[in-house]
Simulated assay, not measured.
Amino acid sequence: MKRFVVAVVAAAGVAVAPVQAVAHERQAHEGQRVDIAVGVGGFDAPSTISAGAVTFSVSTSDPAGAWLGLVRLRAGVSRERYLADLTRAMGPEPVEGGRAVAKDAEMLGGVAVARTPAAVTVRVSPGDYLLVDFRDVGLPDLADRVRPVRVVPGPGGGHGPADQVVVVLDGRFVAPAAISGSVRVVNLSPHVNEAMLMPVRPGTTDADLGAFFRGTGPAPFTGGPTGVVPLSPGRSAVLDADLPAGPYALVTWVTDTRTGRMFAADGMRALVRVGG
């Protein structure tokens, strides 16, 4: 297995030059590491962290996996309102709920894990945040599972370097055929979006993926997602995981709030190979 760091640039009508500038950025990696173990009953997290680059290293014993994300509520938005809107967005009202969530909070990303532990590095500024396992949405005790986190002034620091870029232009992932090395995740689109890697059966085609996301074909996946959970426009993250080598689908499970259709059903997906 090869260690890799994946980043996705989500961009709408953005020239390639700025993307290349992002990819070749070389900032020293400074910051702190927060280890979080997620179980069936939830997770614990520190109540205080320092501003700057923070790496959340996540593992889970929950067979359903974990989708741990960091969010910052906008002024005047209560935790109760945000969680109610999040439940709507991930349940019966993906369009109206999704629009409300985008207004409720700044989503800084986070990490989805299945069998393999993974880490994500994000930059945070001082303020009050929430850590949410999006897998818990819909549970009656969701509010009790959310962990408040206060970010206090710190030394700052940036993400690590990025060697590869996966670009989204007009709802498409533009990805290298093989993923290895380090790549940054930057959402330059006007929409909240995510980037998930899911192992697929050998021989899986884009047509197979399209049929699944349109509801006309079987699931081609052989395991759960590892990736970056939703990022607000302008946010970035770096994903680090030691996934088994093989064929993967790079997908998003986010619904386009303009059309009511999943982005992946409309072509925002790519087949890649991880490792050798």
Results as ranks from 00 to 15, higher is better:
V165N: 09
G110W: 03
Y82H: 15
M107K: 06
V124L: 13
G98C: 06
W67Q: 03
R74H: 15
F56R: 01
D133M: 04
I49D: 05
V152C: 07
G156W: 15
Y129W: 10
G157L: 04
D128G: 03
P161N: 04
R74A: 13
W67C: 00
L83Q: 07
D163H: 11
V151N: 04
A75T: 06
G76R: 11
E93H: 10
V174D: 13
R72A: 04
F173W: 02
H159R: 10
F173K: 09
D133G: 03
L169W: 14
T116A: 05
D128Y: 01
G127C: 12
G52R: 00
V132W: 02
P161F: 07
G97A: 01
V124D: 04
P140A: 13
V165R: 11
G97I: 05
R135P: 00
P63Q: 07
L169E: 14
G154D: 14
D141N: 07
D104G: 02
V101Q: 09
V149F: 03
V124T: 11
L86T: 05
G160L: 01
F56H: 00
A89K: 10
L169T: 01
V113R: 02
G91H: 14
A112K: 01
S125V: 10
V166A: 11
G110K: 07
Y129L: 00
F134A: 08
G91D: 11
Q164H: 13
P155T: 12
V77Q: 10
G69I: 01
A119N: 03
R81H: 15
F173Y: 15
V167E: 10
D144W: 08
L142K: 13
D104S: 08
H159V: 08
G109S: 15
T60C: 08
R123M: 05
V168P: 06
A84R: 15
V152M: 13
R135K: 11
R123C: 02
V122S: 04
G158N: 14
R123A: 08
P117D: 03
D141W: 11
Y129Q: 00
G110Q: 00
A177H: 14
L86H: 03
V101K: 06
D144E: 14
V54I: 09
R115T: 10
Y82E: 13
V132F: 12
H159I: 14
A162E: 02
A112R: 06
E96H: 06
V174L: 11
F173Q: 00
T116P: 01
L142I: 09
A143K: 15
L131C: 12
P117T: 07
P92M: 11
L169C: 03
M107N: 13
V77G: 10
R72Y: 08
K103F: 07
V95S: 08
P92D: 15
V58R: 04
A51H: 05
W67G: 00
S57D: 14
A143G: 11
D62T: 03
D128V: 05
P155I: 07
G109Q: 05
A102H: 06
V152G: 12
G157V: 03
R115N: 06
A119Y: 03
R72D: 11
R99L: 15
G110I: 03
G157K: 06
A84H: 09
M90C: 10
A162H: 14
A100N: 06
G76Y: 13
E93C: 00
V166E: 05
L83C: 08
V174N: 07
T55L: 01
V146A: 04
M90Q: 10
D170H: 15
F134S: 02
T48G: 12
L139A: 12
A66G: 10
